[in-house]
Simulated assay, not measured.
Amino acid sequence: MTAGVDTSFDYHSDTPPGKDPDAYSPTLRRHHQLLWSKELPSGARFDLAPEPRSYLAHRSPLGVFRLSSDAITTRLRKRASRVVRDLPDHELPEWGGYTAGSALVFPGIKIGRKQTINGARGFNRTIADRFDLTLECIRRHYLREEPNPLADVLHRYADFFALFEDFSGYVDFFLLQDLVEEDGKTIRFFHRFEDFRTPAVPKTADEYLQYLRLSNDFITSRNRRIDAQP
C-alpha cells in the first residue's frame, strides 16, 4: 500500500461523535497529505501541509491553494428516502465506511463569498452531491462543453484545475481512472445519464440498489489503486 495510507481505515473511527470526518479526522488529513503531495503533470511538486485556518495548503511559484476534504460518494439516503424506506436492510449492499477510496480534496476557500465546489455540487439538484456527475462537469470544464451545471463554480477555481493541464491529467493525479471508460472521456455513471436531463436521484428500488452497487465498486477499485501506488 501507499506508505502510511491504510485504505481499510474508516475515518469515522477517529472522529469525535457527531462531527464530520472531513474536518475532524486527523488520519484523513494525513492521508490526503501523503497521497496528493507529488508531481503535477508539469513536473512541478504539489506539496501539501496544514496551515492555520486551512485544512491543507500548497504554496509555491505556482500559487497558493487552500484545500478542503470531501467524500466523493454518497448513499443518497435522505434524497432517496422514499425509495430507501421501502427497502429491507438486508437488501442494501454493505457499506465499508468512509475510506480513502471515497475521499478527495477541492479548493476550500470561497471566492467573492460564493459557493465552493463542495457546496455547489451538494446544493445543485442536477448534481445532488454525486461525484460521477461532478466529474462529468469537470470533464466539460476542461473541454468547454455545455451544458455544465457547475460551470460557474469550476470557472472560479480555474487556476486549480489548470495545475493538471487537462481532464486526463486531473483523473490520473487523483487516481480516478476507475470512474472513466478506457476512451478516457466517458464517465462510468452510477445511474442512467442523458446529458443532465435525467434525475440525479434514483426513483425506484432497482435503480437505487444499482446505484449503491456501482458506487461501492468504485470505492473498492479506487482503494486498490491507492494500495498499488509506490
Score class of each variant (00 low, 15 high):
V153Y: 03
S69Q: 06
D195V: 06
P93M: 08
R29Y: 01
L34S: 11
Q210P: 00
F164D: 03
P26T: 08
F46P: 01
H32T: 04
N216D: 15
S37N: 08
Y208M: 02
W95Q: 04
F106A: 01
F174A: 08
S69F: 04
E94L: 14
L133E: 00
R75F: 05
S168V: 09
P199F: 07
H12E: 12
L62A: 13
V171M: 03
V5L: 03
E136T: 05
D195M: 07
S68A: 15
D22F: 04
G108W: 02
S60P: 09
R85C: 00
R29M: 11
L67R: 04
I117M: 05
T126A: 14
I187N: 01
Q229D: 08
R85I: 07
F160G: 03
R30A: 14
I219V: 15
D132T: 06
N118Q: 11
R144N: 14
D10I: 01
D10R: 06
T7W: 05
T126M: 13
S25R: 01
A200L: 01
R125C: 07
E181M: 08
R225G: 00
F131I: 03
A57V: 14
A57S: 15
Q177N: 15
F106N: 03
A162I: 05
R144F: 10
A128I: 06
L179N: 01
G43D: 00
A128Y: 04
L48C: 08
R79V: 00
A205G: 13
S221A: 15
G18T: 02
R156Q: 15
E182F: 00
D6Q: 13
R82K: 15
W95K: 13
P230D: 15
G184W: 09
Y142K: 01
A120P: 03
D70N: 09
E182W: 00
H58F: 07
P17A: 13
F123G: 11
R45M: 15
Y11H: 06
G122V: 01
L76E: 03
P26N: 06
H31Y: 04
L209S: 05
L143S: 10
A158G: 12
G18L: 04
T220V: 09
R121H: 13
A3I: 15
R59C: 01
L150W: 05
K203Q: 14
T126D: 10
P16V: 12
R85A: 02
A151L: 12
L133F: 08
L92M: 15
P149R: 06
K185Q: 13
R82Y: 13
L214I: 02
T116R: 06
G122C: 05
H141V: 09
Q177C: 10
V153F: 04
R188Q: 11
L35G: 03
A103L: 01
S168Q: 12
F196W: 10
H32G: 11
S69G: 14
A200P: 02
E182T: 09
F193L: 05
P149I: 07
T2H: 15
S42I: 10
Q210G: 14
H191C: 04
D47H: 14
A200S: 10
G96C: 07
H90V: 14
K38N: 08
K78R: 14
P93D: 07
K19R: 12
L143D: 11
R59E: 11
P107W: 06
S221M: 03
D14E: 09
V64M: 00
K114H: 12
D227F: 06
D47F: 13
